[in-house]
Design a protein around this nucleic acid. Structure first.
Lengths: 173, 173
DNA sequence: CGGTATTTGATATATTGGATAACAATTATC
DNA sequence: GATAATTGTTATCCAATATATCAAATACCG
């Protein structure tokens, strides 16, 4: 039983809200059944991740920092004296791709590379004073706007439990 | 206090494991402190999502289905008689990008588009018999290999709680 | 010591996912 | 019936991700 060439069954006449210029449109195609999709952990994971990143970008917008850039600044602050390979590896960034990323941060005077005296191949990465200042401001924005809102939605206990489970997946899965 | 041009402090001499041909290398740059990074929900979210998708790909590899393709097949099965815009919207896929995706599925005879008799602009999407068969096999692989392993790692109760929180984020955040 | 293999940062490049603009065909609206 | 809106599509564009390769520097090993 193959498909017939025209669909005379299940007429294509969805609710068709037909309004689009409301506040900020994002309710398209209502009444679709997700089915097993809502039981797929990967699906919910990706959806949640996209929203969280979107909110992060909004919250840190005044500083023009992406989640990836913020994570680099955080790592540089916590781990002085490391080179590009080390930082990139711990963040799961490939060395070739990390070059352009550092170029961006360095051109904004947020961090600096300097050749190591021990191993003249590697570049020791450091935060500049401006980088430290921006990081401090970013941390504050993230804590008071981004993570605070997550705490509101989930509740502190749930938020902690969520974090634990995500870390467990990244670690043991 | 700006940065000096060469780093004579914090010598760049990491543990340097110096072995790379072990089983499957992924332990690079050990002993780096994540710091506040491990408290960033977005960071753990993304890391977990990447691992889960990676495992999904492995589990469904015999069927050559990506998570996105699987979600399309699932949606088509649950929602017959819908057009491209509706399916794409519910999955968060932009209509232009959905075209190539459908081309791929259709060229493998997993689904088919047919012009609606009601609205001759829209394409009604249907699963083919092969599409249904592949979907059934994929579901089985996902359930027995992918989700089962997640259940092992998290435990059923935690897995359910995790799913709820992720859905809540995608919904209320 | 000297030659080979590794490592580091870098470049070039390919692939993929995701986003916008524009267009023809069709339908809705007034 | 004229204008606006919708659908699928194409053409781009941008960002993230992946691989191969390279020169410089270092490690390794006979």
């Amino acid at each position: 039983m193959t498909v017939s060439k025209t669909a005379d069954v299940d007429a294509a006449k969805p609710p068709r809200p037909s309004r689009k210029a409301n506040g900020e449109g994002a309710d398209e195609a209502a009444s679709l059944q997700l089915g097993e999709l809502s039981e797929l952990l990967g699906y919910s994971l990706k959806r949640a991740q996209l929203r969280v990143f979107e909110d992060f970008l909004n919250c840190v917008a005044p500083l023009q920092l992406t989640p990836a850039q913020f994570s680099v600044l955080l790592l540089l602050d916590r781990n002085p004296g490391r080179n590009q390979t080390e930082i990139a590896n711990t963040l799961g960034i490939l060395r070739p791709n990390f070059v352009a990323m550092l170029d961006g941060l360095e051109s904004r005077d947020l961090c600096a590379r300097m050749r190591s005296t021990n191993d003249r191949r590697s570049h020791i990465l450091t935060l500049t004073d401006k980088g430290r200042a921006v990081l401090a401001r970013a941390k504050k924005l993230v804590a008071t706007k981004h993570e605070a809102r997550l705490n509101e939605v989930l509740g502190p206990a749930n938020r902690a439990a969520l974090l634990d489970m995500l870390a467990k997946i990244a670690r043991e899965f």
